[in-house]
Write a protein that binds this DNA or RNA. Structure first.
Lengths: 246, 246
DNA sequence: TAGTGGTCTAGACCACCGT
DNA sequence: CGGTGGTCTAGACCACTAG
């Protein structure tokens, strides 16, 4: 199910807000694709019968929301998912001599399961709905650093069940985009400390009594619908998180 | 008294950017004070000899940066520091029955010290420069939850050395504003996990071997200058941090 | 009612980019 | 060079707030 697109534009809203909703819908339903340029300002103004300044204001809102990107002299583009390697935000990624280390990912398991209550809650699906469950190990310099449980609604991600593990690559979000047409636009992360479950401890090669950082992440698409729920475990003593607060 | 305007206004910058810098300087040096309204748009446009639209664009930038706040029909206002109780972002603040708990603060010690290399680095002052060092305990339901080491440059905060502990209140940032005229506008936090120093363990009433969440925070003013460096310790098992990522 | 910010328009010129 | 977004202007009308 897709989030209800507003078939009726609210005339009480300012015109630039109505335009914003129109443009956001075009991105959310794929008429405007990530990485591609949208029509020029004056063309949009003409087709929607408003002044260019009103289009500019609507686009400015979308740029502020992170959905669009403007490049002077080239055009306005739909932003690609750009979380890059979020792992680097979490864990110290340099070795003893301060050299950066390159992370590698390995898929450990893949199956379709009915959603648990917790997973269903995070993904906004019905209890027991079919879910793709991946476990994944991320290594640095050949040593395990992070164990991840990834949960995806089967519906738009079914293609991942047929993909050989070797073709998953080191990052999942670009794969979601290229293989399933889903772009991760934002996320909510919750961090806590606790003891790892047996599977995580085993995969990481640590004792079940070693404290671990536990990061829950729900990733959302441009339409604010949940796309992925991920729980990651890593040794607490290597954990470090930095954030700017406005 | 009229403060000297910033001697370097870059004519190569767009006019709205020059205006932004002018207005930001007015806030940073206190000519426009937190909570107060700034002059109306058309007045600003007249005194700076630009169109109202250009003033509006400059103000929009400052609103996006969090420095100003617009209220339709009333005016444009300098924002007050509004971190509220940042403690609530970090630790579970509800009791076993889910009722919210009210935090209380108690100052434990206060002295002037030469800045260590680490503190000097964070505060952007010279090594060994005089620093006000506070230690502080934050309690919930009468039980210690967080131990904090607060470091301030003595220069603008000297008044705090004469204030009775009883008058510090539960939050420091409003005190910085009312007593010292310094507004905290943003901050950078770094979270990690480790063992508490002896003083922290003693104040929290825990064993020095109990795992602890360690939060370093550098707080900045509107002019991006560091105002405070704070290191907080709390029991890891009560720690939980949630953040939205764009 | 008077004053404020919010919205919208129409048009001019500038700066950047690829060909 | 032609096309794009970036900046700036001038003016009109609307919506909200306070007295």
């Amino acid at each position: 199910m897709t989030t209800a697109l507003p078939p009726t534009l609210d005339d009480r809203l300012p015109r630039y807000q109505q335009l914003r909703d129109l443009f956001a819908a075009a991105v959310a339903d794929g008429r405007w694709r990530p990485g591609e340029a949208i029509p020029p300002e004056d063309s949009l103004a003409a087709t929607h019968e408003v002044a260019v300044g009103t289009v500019r204001k609507a686009l400015a809102v979308l740029v502020a929301e992170g959905m669009l990107e403007r490049r002077q002299g080239r055009g306005t583009f739909v932003r690609r998912g750009s979380f890059g390697n979020a792992l680097a935000r979490f864990f110290r990624m340099t070795d003893a001599k301060g050299r950066p280390m390159r992370p590698v990912s390995r898929i450990l398991s893949r199956q379709v399961l009915p959603a648990s209550a917790e997973v269903a809650e995070h993904l906004g699906v019905a209890d027991g709905a079919p879910i793709i469950a991946l476990t994944r190990l991320r290594l640095v310099d050949g040593a395990p650093l992070l164990f991840e449980e990834v949960h995806l609604p089967r519906d738009p991600f079914a293609l991942l069940m047929d993909l050989p593990f070797a073709e998953f690559g080191d990052l999942l979000y670009p794969l979601y985009e290229t293989a399933c047409g889903k772009v991760v636009a934002s996320a909510r992360e919750t961090i806590r400390f606790g003891m790892p479950p047996a599977a995580a401890a085993a995969a990481l090669g640590i004792d079940a009594g070693v404290p671990t950082a536990i990061i829950d992440r729900v990733a959302f698409g441009f339409d604010q619908a949940p796309l992925e729920f991920r729980r990651s475990y890593g040794p607490a003593e290597r954990f470090s998180y930095s954030i700017d607060i406005r």
